[in-house]
Design a protein around this nucleic acid. Sequence first.
DNA 1: GAGACGATCGCCGGGATTGTTA
DNA 2: ACTAACAATCCCGGCGATCGTC
Lengths: 161, 161
Amino acid sequence: MKTIEVDEDLYRYIASNTRHIGESASDILRRLLKLQPAASAVAEPTPVAGKGIAQMLGGNELAADESAIDRFMHILAVLYRENPTSFAQACDIKGRKRIYFADSEAALLAAGNTTKPKAIDGSPYWVITNTNTGRKRNIVAQLMAAMGYPHGLIERVCQSI
Amino acid sequence: MKTIEVDEDLYRYIASNTRHIGESASDILRRLLKLQPAASAVAEPTPVAGKGIAQMLGGNELAADESAIDRFMHILAVLYRENPTSFAQACDIKGRKRIYFADSEAALLAAGNTTKPKAIDGSPYWVITNTNTGRKRNIVAQLMAAMGYPHGLIERVCQSI
DNA sequence: GAGACGATCGCCGGGATTGTTA
DNA sequence: ACTAACAATCCCGGCGATCGTC
């Protein structure tokens, strides 16, 4: 991985061409420049834990998300994609009254008022959304901890929300 | 200046496309992606009348358009003509409920009430028209940013609406 | 769906702030 | 009582589209 500097507007241009969750700056540039996709992209059946999330942090993909909610949803989508099974086991996190994750909007609505549930892209899950940013960080931290991510990475991800 | 991370091979590819000493990554990428140059440095006179956005601003082309809508439509037509591909990638801009661009009138009508779609001259695209001038400026700014135009030019174009 | 334009104002989403409970 | 953790109200900024104006 090399680091290069680009102007603001170029950066936005690249970010605006994100096609799907988990796409890195390299992926986007390769597509825009009509180059061959990275060789390893398809071949790897079991991604190394932490790879997807770390890549997300390194690249510019979160830049396209304007709000904390967008970044929150984006991170959750990547976490799910990276390890659906682990996510499923880890996501029964709850607050005092509310539950945070469920496989239906109704379940979340039933456990609190005005929770503003949103569907997690590419997964069967929904999350609560009506929280301050601190709690969003909290939820992500708890989830990632339960999924077995290392401390440092968790911290960096939370920082990025 | 923003920093992004790219794979080794991409880095080498970009470096190998350097045209002259001191050329920045942004300059090279702009050229490879066929985006607008950052500086006003249009060293060579661009002869064809009505060729680009800068030309349009320079001349009195827009003066003939009485209303903000006319100027709005005019600008969009020029932007499309200047780079149809980039326009196509950039134009999936939307509001909270409405979509702003589409390749058919019906698509815009379906996504909002009384949006007053109009066809963009010389292109297959339609835009929403029932917005205040601030929003028209907004739409143009978002579009141009996503097409990779530099800030200064975007501002001047919006000013002219 | 046919008058055209677009400012104004109502509504909605984001999330900090404030109220509540353990 | 005091605090920490949590819930959800409510303010602000942004968006939609009605309706006043020409």
